[in-house]
């Protein structure tokens, strides 16, 4: 009797295990149905996590480096005011201003402004903490290494590049790619603001061309932000502000009368001094709004 009962329980247990195994083995089929997406579908949601179209934006350090190579000198007082990061309460403003500080950090490092660099590094760390990204700065002892290498431009640039790499990896692992796009939008507007302020009435034609080149990537920034709207609807306000700059840029005679230039790698984009001034005003207006929080 006991033996029969034992055998029944054992068979029952085996059946349960078999049922679970079957469920596990057959579990892939319905998943396929939900992941099926048409080839031309550009919606990430349509294919269950697979991004049919995505974007990889440059780093703030590269923009600062390009401007420097074009003759952009250091000008006192053009970087953003060192505000208490506690004033930025919304995560969008925190990410946006982390980008602004990243651009200021790159600009001051490449121009050997040690005190300012250290201050922007600390502010960046504080904003990163608020965004829950403390681990990025803790890894590889970046802040300490940065302090120890003050005065050595190449080493500092290397550390900033490493910081960027760790940030990219952290945000990807935590499925927070929208923060990458927002941070870059902040960095881009700050870099453009610095570039236009130091441009100084068109005295440097090389810099004029580089400003035009930078405006050419605004379309990619907007597409990257729009692709992340589902994750953070607050991005809509940010894209609206950046779109106002793009609208002005697209209507400039140098751009409008030269429609293929933006795609032609053999042509160099160039704006007139008046056009740069028109754009600079708009950039300043948007940047003021961003750093105000």
């Amino acid at each position: 009797m006991f033996s029969k009962k034992k055998s029944f329980v054992l068979k029952g247990s085996m059946l349960c295990v078999a049922a679970v195994l079957l469920t596990a083995c057959g579990g892939e089929a319905p998943k396929e149905d939900t992941t099926a997406a048409p080839v031309a579908d550009t919606s990430a949601a349509a294919s269950n996590d697979t991004e049919q179209q995505s974007y990889s934006l440059p780093s703030p350090l590269q923009i600062a480096s390009i401007f420097k190579k074009s003759g952009l000198k250091y000008k006192d007082g053009v970087t953003s005011p060192m505000k208490d990061p506690a004033k930025y309460t919304a995560s969008l403003n925190q990410a946006l201003n982390l980008g602004v500080y990243s651009a200021d950090l790159s600009y001051t490092v490449l121009n050997k402004q040690n005190q300012e660099s250290m201050a922007y590094m600390k502010l960046s760390r504080q904003l990163a903490d608020k965004l829950g990204m403390s681990a990025v700065f803790d890894e590889g002892n970046l802040a300490t290494r940065f302090e120890k290498n003050l005065g050595n431009e190449d080493s500092l640039a290397y550390i900033i590049a490493e910081l960027q790499m760790l940030t990219d990896m952290y945000l990807d692992e935590n499925n927070q790619q929208q923060i990458t796009s927002i941070v870059f939008a902040g960095a881009w507007i700050e870099s453009m603001y610095i570039g236009s302020k130091v441009f100084d009435g068109g005295k440097k034609s090389g810099l004029n061309n580089k400003l035009a080149e930078q405006l050419n990537i605004l379309g990619s920034i907007l597409k990257s932000l729009n692709a992340q709207l589902k994750k953070d609807p607050a991005i809509a306000g940010l894209t609206a502000d950046l779109q106002t700059i793009k609208n002005i840029y697209d209507e400039l005679p140098s751009v409008k009368n030269n429609p293929g230039a933006a795609d032609d790698s053999e042509k160099e984009l160039s704006l007139t001094n008046e056009e740069v001034v028109t754009l600079s005003k708009k950039i300043e207006e948007v940047r003021t709004k961003f750093i105000k929080g």
Binding site: T50, Q52, Q53, S54, Y55, S56, Q62, N216, S220
Partner: peptide, 10 residues
């Protein structure tokens, strides 16, 4: 599927 990543460069 054709997954595409746009990379702006200078």
């Amino acid at each position: 599927q054709q997954l595409e990543v746009e990379v702006p460069v200078f």
